[in-house]
Design a protein around this nucleic acid. Structure first.
Lengths: 170, 170
DNA sequence: ATTTTTAATATGAAAATTCATATGAAAATT
DNA sequence: AATTTTCATATGAATTTTCATATTAAAAAT
C-alpha cells in the first residue's frame, strides 16, 4: 500500500514487500470484496441483503434449485441458507417445494414477485460488470474470467463444501 | 468465442447459460472461496479460525498496524475486528498499544508467540500458492495477480470501506 | 425384507457479527 | 482558546451465523 505500482520484486529494494503483496488468495478476496462492495450499495437500495441477492441471483432463470446446490452457488453454509431461504419465503420472494424424485430434497424457486424484484438488479449487475471490465478490453476480460473458471474447476473438487471434516478449535 | 471451456451445468440439460456463468463477481467469489477453503483446513489444524489467520497474516512482518488498516487488509468490519483482536489478545497472540502520534489509534502487533504460531502457516500458504499456480506457469500467474491488483486499485477507492452510508432494510 | 449407512434439510443453543452509538482525541472553525 | 466537526476505536443489544445434532428419506448391505 505504501509502495508505488510496481509488482515485480525486481531485486533487492528497501520496500518490505509484505507477504500479502504476492499472495494470490489475498488479491482474490480483495478483488472479490471491492467489486462486490460497489454493487452492494445497489442491492441495499432494494432492501435486500447481499446474501439474499446472491441466492436470488442464483435462482434467476432457473426453475428451481435444491438447498445444497444453492449452497455451492451462493457459497453459503447449509444451515445458514436454510434460514435465509425461510426469510425469503416469508417475504414472498421464493417458493419451497419438494422434488418428486427425492423427497428429502427441497426445491427453491422464485415467486413471480421474486422474479420481478430481481430482474432489474440482474440488468444492473450486468451493466456494472461491463463498466468494471471496460478498461481491460474484450480479450483480457475473457482471459480473466477463463482463468478464474479454471482455478475453480481445479479446486472445487478438492475443497469439500461445508468444512464439516474440519475440527474447529476448543 | 469458442466456449469449449464451458462450465458445469447445475444439473439440468440444454445448458441455458445462466446469468452467473458470465458474471465476473460470481467467479471472483468462487475462486476466492475455493482457494481459501483448501487452506482453511490447514489453518483449522492449528486451532485458529480463518478470520484470525487473516488478521495474523496481515500482521506478519509488520511492526504493528492500526485497527482501521487491518480492517482494509483483512476485510473485516471495524466492530468485528475490535472484538476479534480482543480474543487474539486473550490468547496472547497479539499485543495492543496506542501510537505516540495519535492517541486515538490502537496499534496491533504480534507477540513472540504469535509470530511463532503464524510463521509456519505463512510458509505453508506460500507453498500452497505455488501449488495452485503451477499449472498456469510463471507468465500467466503474474498476469493474473497483476489484473487482480489493477481491479482492486481501480475500485478500492470507490467502495467506501464500511458500508456505513448504506441504509440496511427495515 | 430388515438393518445399516449415507444423504438432504431443519433446528436449537452457542458463538460471532452487525448496527447503532458511545467515548475520547485530533483537526478545523470560530 | 473555545467550539464544532471529524476521526479511530470500543461496546451493548439485536441479528445472523455456526456447530452440533435431529429428522426424514434414499441407498447399500445383510
Amino acid at each position: 500500500m505504501t509502495k508505488d505500482t510496481k509488482t515485480q520484486p525486481s531485486g533487492h529494494e528497501e520496500a518490505p514487500l509484505r507477504f500479502l503483496d504476492q499472495y494470490l488468495p489475498y488479491w482474490l478476496s480483495q478483488a472479490s470484496y471491492w467489486i462486490s462492495s460497489e454493487f452492494h450499495r445497489e442491492v441495499a437500495r432494494t432492501g435486500l441483503t447481499f446474501a439474499e441477492w446472491r441466492v436470488l441471483a442464483c435462482l434467476y432463470g432457473s426453475s428451481g434449485e435444491t438447498i445444497s446446490t444453492l449452497c455451492r452457488l451462493a457459497l453459503i453454509k447449509q444451515s445458514t441458507l436454510s434460514k435465509l431461504v425461510k426469510r425469503l419465503e416469508v417475504g414472498n420472494l421464493t417458493l419451497r417445494q419438494s422434488t418428486e424424485g427425492d423427497r428429502r430434497q427441497t426445491l427453491v424457486s422464485l415467486t413471480t414477485e421474486g422474479q420481478v424484484r430481481i430482474a432489474g438488479l440482474v440488468s444492473k449487475a450486468q451493466a456494472h460488470q461491463r463498466e468494471i471490465l471496460r478498461p481491460f478490453g474484450e480479450e483480457n476480460s475473457r482471459a480473466l474470467i477463463n482463468t478464474l473458471q479454471e482455478l475453480v474447476r481445479e479446486h472445487e473438487r478438492s475443497g469439500l463444501f461445508d468444512h464439516d471434516s474440519v475440527r474447529p478449535r476448543r
